[in-house]
């Protein structure tokens, strides 16, 4: 029965974690040549937590697995995907059916582009979504208010998705999440195409949602935007999390950052050193035995090429690196 107390203790520790992803691995079964199939591993040993009232930014380049993680949480992976590990929501392990039940209600996605909207449905109906009878007027009013806040003219309501310009579309998509009662909000790449003013507004709405007690997961490659509002930043690389850092760690030359990749990312910003490290993220079909960052790391030693480094907790953050203390 010692087991049970352990679980309880663990549960307490993660009391505020609304979403808890543990040791997640994702692979796709693909045809290689002709009729043979192989497995392509795209996410491996990934653990991450999103807490109520906090914004967690998931930062990574394209191909780092950040979008696939959201697909896994929402249960919208294609049928050739193979998922291992655990996804817990509010303390409960999610099955595919749970995901389908929760998405749109408890878990909302702010998609990247209008192609996620129904092309044959007017914008306002999609923003409001399905509501109970009697509440339509209230929702309509709320939607008008939000549209006004987002600088969307009243005629936008009656438009169809293809009539929206890029920036307008983005604002419409964000307003759908603002309208929804979801507790976990996943925002997929909200920043490209937004001008500074709209960007700051969008970010402040995300902050509002977090302040109201929702957990917000901000998926982005734009570390600057992430730094403006997030509480924690998870750095993705080649299908795994290399570091979860607090926003305060990003300052000066990045000496408080735990992982060399995070430091490199910070120093590559144009307002910092604009310094690029060499090399590429390993491709999905390249087999890496050791640390995924080994090739590009300046701190590497022999140990790093053998086996994936263990997760360490340092200074209130988490890092997967052999060479930090």
């Amino acid at each position: 029965m010692g087991n049970k107390t352990e679980i309880n203790a663990k549960g307490k520790e993660k009391a505020e974690a609304l979403l808890n992803v543990e040791d997640l691995s994702l692979s796709f079964i693909q045809y290689t040549s002709g009729l043979r199939q192989t497995e392509l591993k795209v996410i491996s040993n990934l653990s991450i937590q999103a807490n109520r009232g906090e914004i967690l930014a998931v930062v990574g380049s394209s191909g780092s697995g950040k979008s696939l993680l959201t697909h896994a949480i929402l249960g919208i992976l294609p049928s050739n995907a193979k998922l291992d590990g655990k996804i817990e929501y509010d303390g409960q392990v999610l099955t595919q059916k749970d995901k389908e039940d929760l998405r749109g209600k408890e878990i909302a996605l702010v998609p990247q582009s209008v192609t996620y909207l129904d092309p044959l449905m007017k914008v306002s109906n999609q923003v409001i979504g399905a509501v109970e009878k009697g509440k339509e007027d209230l929702m309509k009013k709320l939607q008008r208010e939000i549209f006004q806040q987002y600088n969307l003219k009243p005629e936008v309501e009656r438009m169809y998705p293809h009539e929206l310009s890029g920036g307008m579309a983005r604002r419409v998509l964000v307003s759908t999440a603002v309208m929804s009662p979801a507790k976990l909000i996943i925002v997929d790449e909200p920043t490209p195409g937004l001008d500074e003013k709209t960007l700051n507004e969008t970010l402040s709405y995300l902050k509002d949602m977090a302040n109201k007690g929702s957990a917000v997961m901000l998926i982005t490659h734009d570390i600057e935007a992430a730094l403006k509002i997030s509480d924690k930043i998870a750095v993705f690389y080649a299908g795994t999390v290399l570091e979860v850092a607090n926003v305060e760690d990003f300052k000066n030359d990045g000496e408080n950052l735990r992982h060399p990749y995070t430091q490199a990312l910070w120093n590559a910003l144009p307002q910092n050193k604009f310094q690029a490290i060499e090399g590429h993220q390993p491709m999905q079909d390249e087999v890496v035995d050791g640390c995924v960052f080994y090739e590009r790391c300046y701190k590497k030693n022999e140990l790093c090429s053998k086996g994936i480094p263990q997760i360490k907790k340092i200074n209130g953050g988490v890092v997967r690196c052999n060479n930090v203390s």
């Binding site: 380049s61 570390i223 990312l265 910003l269 144009p270 604009f274 690029a276 060499e278």
Partner: peptide, 10 residues
């Protein structure tokens, strides 16, 4: 715009 900071700098 769609790329991470390191790739952008590269």
């Amino acid at each position: 715009t769609m790329l991470d900071a390191i790739t952008q700098a590269q």
